[in-house]
Amino acid sequence: MKHNQLELWIISLKVMMLLYAVVSYFMSGAVVSPWMTLFILIYVSLNISFHLIGRYLKLVMIACSIAVLVVFHYALYPLLVVLIPVNLYELAAQLFRNHWLRAAIVFIPLVVLPNEWLLDYGLFAALGFVFLTMLNIYESKVQYLSDETDRMRNDIHQLTVRLAQNEEFMRQAEHAYKLEERNRLSQEVHDQIGHSMTGALIQMEAAKRLMDNDPAKTAELLQNAIHISKEGIERIRLVLKNMKPLTEQLGLRRMKRLTEQFSATQPIRIFLTHEGNLDRIAPIHWKIFEENMMESLTNTMKYAQASVVTVHIQVLNTMIKCMVSDNGNGERQVIKGMGIIGMEERASTIGGTVIVDGSGGFSVTTLIPYKKCEESHGEG
Rank of each mutant, 00 (worst) to 15 (best):
R184E: 06
E181R: 13
E148M: 13
H195R: 14
L145D: 12
A206C: 06
H312Q: 15
M170D: 09
T149C: 05
L367I: 11
L222E: 00
E174M: 05
R280P: 00
T318I: 02
L240C: 01
M134T: 07
L222K: 01
Q305T: 02
N87Y: 01
G232H: 00
Y370G: 15
Y56I: 08
M319E: 15
F96E: 12
E167I: 15
G378Y: 13
K208E: 07
R151L: 14
K58W: 02
V334L: 08
Q165E: 12
L132V: 07
S65M: 06
R55M: 01
G337C: 07
R55Y: 01
V142D: 10
R269C: 04
L278W: 04
L110I: 07
G360Q: 10
N166C: 04
L69A: 09
E260G: 04
H99W: 12
V32E: 06
G342D: 10
L221M: 10
V111L: 15
Q261I: 03
G194Q: 03
V82R: 05
S359C: 02
R171H: 09
L159N: 08
D214I: 06
G276H: 08
W100Q: 12
G29N: 11
A103E: 05
G361W: 02
I66F: 06
I288T: 06
K287D: 15
V68C: 15
T310C: 03
G128R: 05
K230Q: 13
V68M: 14
I281Y: 02
F124V: 10
R55P: 01
R151N: 13
G251V: 01
M301E: 04
I193P: 04
R346N: 07
E90Y: 04
